[in-house]
């Protein structure tokens, strides 16, 4: 994986990718489950518990990915 991204296997669930956003902004963990759903964990550094957790279906994750990647600009 690229610099600043760590991968962790979660047997029976899927894989987790941890992304460092730099000192102030916090960090994000993405869990890609075997069933295709994704969990987006957002940490803003208040504690070890996540600030927000969003569950996305495969379809929603693809849309969000396209938006974040800057390739989705319909209408």
């Amino acid at each position: 994986m690229g610099h600043g991204v760590q991968v962790q296997d979660l047997p029976g669930i899927g894989k987790r990718y941890d992304l460092d956003l730099g000192q102030r902004a916090g960090r994000i963990s993405v869990v890609v489950r075997n069933d295709g759903n994704r969990d987006l964990y957002v940490f803003t550094g208040q504690s070890g518990d996540p600030t927000a957790v969003v569950e996305l279906t495969e379809e929603q994750a693809r849309k969000l990915g396209a938006l974040l990647g800057g390739t989705f600009f319909e209408g």
């Binding site: 296997d9 979660l10 047997p11 987790r16 869990v31 969990d39 940490f43």
Partner: peptide, 18 residues
């Protein structure tokens, strides 16, 4: 998954036990 514990240190241990 529902308790949002997928990033906890003990979670891989729990999954390993299972």
């Amino acid at each position: 998954i529902e308790l949002h514990r997928l990033t906890n240190a003990e979670t891989p241990v729990v999954l390993g036990i299972i």
